[in-house]
Design a protein around this nucleic acid. Structure first.
Lengths: 197, 197
DNA sequence: AAACATCGCTAACACGCGTTAGTATAGTAT
DNA sequence: ATACTATACTAACGCGTGTTAGCGATGTTT
């Protein structure tokens, strides 16, 4: 009988959720079946239900663990006493590094949250909306203090966030520049697009 | 018996494909069922097959009609005799306007192409890869002529393209700025992030 | 060694899916 | 009016889905 291997003191549930992230990224939430997941984990499909309640629960876990990390970060950054442009750069670097090092989860949370079901769905959408407003508010501050050029702050936010999700393409690409180079290039272009001069 | 309404001299097939675009955007390709589509069109599911060969064929049509428009545009822009930065701005404006005025199709082509099946899938991926290389080459030219700052051109491309796909959020947002304002803001930030100064 | 909880298995379920066959109806051309 | 084509319908198919029930095996605690 094939037990789920738990290394690095992960629970079996965490192993499942982690494999699911990979699968959901590759195929999309709907197209990835529990039988696919079972095979990836090395077990029969029914056995998964000893550890998780449902397929959607896996998606919850993924989406909210990612969302929480971003909320905690913006809490931290907002509390800082520094220029708007510094705050924005810190947030961007955090986003970039999340996308670099927790690729599967972040990607899935970004693209597959639509398939959450309803108390969670509206909850997630709210969190996202609020996060973006807080991000926009920082940009707005930067504009008022003339560090950032006069632009529509919500538009700037969506450009930044979506641009970073492009790291997906970097992951898939064959001739990659290093992660550090990628980060610096992105910061240069994105922050460069904001600053007043 | 409920016939499919064809107005603006669209064929019935085009009506189906167009409704499918909306549905695929809302639910995703896998989650949108032929019965959903039939209901949106105002007909029974089986009746759709008088006009289309399969569900995937609809996706082909959508993906390749969008891809072709971009290829034609870059053909046109490359042939021009103008500065790199002008060419890039023209491409970006084209992307933005495609996303503004053919939202459903472009969005679906962008997010759901994974579900194409294989002669078409690799074909589509190739077209995309080549398109991005051509875009990157224009940026490279701009760098060599010192109009654009020294950045990794492929990274710049993925930032641009993904940033524009963020217009999705604009469409969904309630308090929208106008399309024209959106376009100018995006150009200002994106081109501003590239130029040498 | 006995008792207990944890975990994986087989079998099966109800359901929704894309699609096909065959038939009836509506619209168009003769 | 008649013939023909285009289009819609009903019924059904085989298949894959998420999930449950019940049982046996493994691991842990007393």
């Amino acid at each position: 009988m094939a037990r789920i291997k738990t290394e690095n003191n992960l629970t079996r549930k965490e192993v499942i959720v982690s494999k699911a992230a990979t699968l959901f990224r590759e195929k999309g939430f709907k197209a990835a079946s529990m039988r696919d997941l079972a095979e990836a984990v090395g077990v029969e499909a029914a056995s998964l239900y000893n550890h998780i309640k449902s397929k959607t629960e896996i998606l919850h876990e993924l989406c909210f663990s990612v969302a929480n990390r971003f909320v905690h970060k913006i809490d931290e950054v907002e509390a800082e006493n520094s220029d708007a442009i510094i705050k924005i750069e810190k947030l961007l670097r955090f986003h970039i590094n999340e996308m670099l090092h927790h690729y599967e989860e972040v990607y899935v949370s970004d693209r597959e949250w639509k398939h959450l079901s309803d108390p969670y769905l509206s909850n997630f959408q709210n969190q996202r909306r609020i996060y973006r407003k807080r991000f926009a508010a920082i940009i707005e501050n930067g504009i008022n203090e003339h560090q950032i050029k006069k632009i529509d702050a919500p538009t700037a936010v969506l450009i930044m966030l979506h641009a970073i999700s492009g790291i997906e393409s970097w992951h898939r690409s064959t001739q990659k520049i290093t992660a550090e180079e990628l980060e610096e290039n992105m910061i240069s272009i994105l922050v460069g697009g904001l600053v007043n001069r």
